[in-house]
Amino acid sequence: MTERRGVSRRGFLKGLGAAAVTGPVGFAGIAMAAKADEEAAAVPVLGPGATPVRLKVNGKVHDLSIEPRVTLLDALRDTIGLTGPKEVCDRGACGGCTVLLDGMAVCGCMMLAIDVGDREVTTVEGLCGPDGAPSDLQQQFVAKDALQCGYCTCGMVTAAEGLLRSKPVLSPDEVRAGISGNLCRCGTYTRIVEAVIATSALRRKGK
């Protein structure tokens, strides 16, 4: 390992106004001995074998027994049996596995199931109405033909839903930026933008 380079307190001070000194420098070298000295309760270490993991998915609680290495995507597909989130690139580069965590779009392939904790997972299935009816956004995807082979569609719809929740009014460029983590090999982007804009307009009218 590299030898620890100088803490550079001197360098850090250099040129800083007096008022700023209360900032970083204030912390340098402070030993929080009291806390560290306390005999910590044993830290739970799970796995590497199967361990209990509770997931809240589309409003339902699932108690699973999975290894810590299992990604959220694999848990959703292989253990819970959902089909919406797809594995495409397995590296967070395509968005095919997009799900919402407390309403925020994330890639299921780059998150461990064990890391989800109490957060509510919503997949494309969970965007439907209670009777399985397509949501307004899903209907617009169909109406505008914003899908071809359909393999990217679940991730696209979910990413777009996350986008609409964070920003209800969007320009076409903002839609493109907002779904820029999703790839479509059939080339449906033009119509996805139309579908998202149309949904945004419908939701505003509905309010």
């Binding site: 797809k86 299935e125 399985g132 397509p134 899903q138 169909v142 033909d145 359909g150 569609t153 679940c154």
Partner: peptide, 21 residues
């Protein structure tokens, strides 16, 4: 005419080979 399997695809219900369990 919107594609007739559009809803199945947009809701995640369309079953692809990778989805078969």
């Amino acid at each position: 005419v919107p594609r007739i399997d559009g809803v199945a695809k947009a809701t995640g219900r369309a079953e692809y080979t990778t989805d078969v369990r």
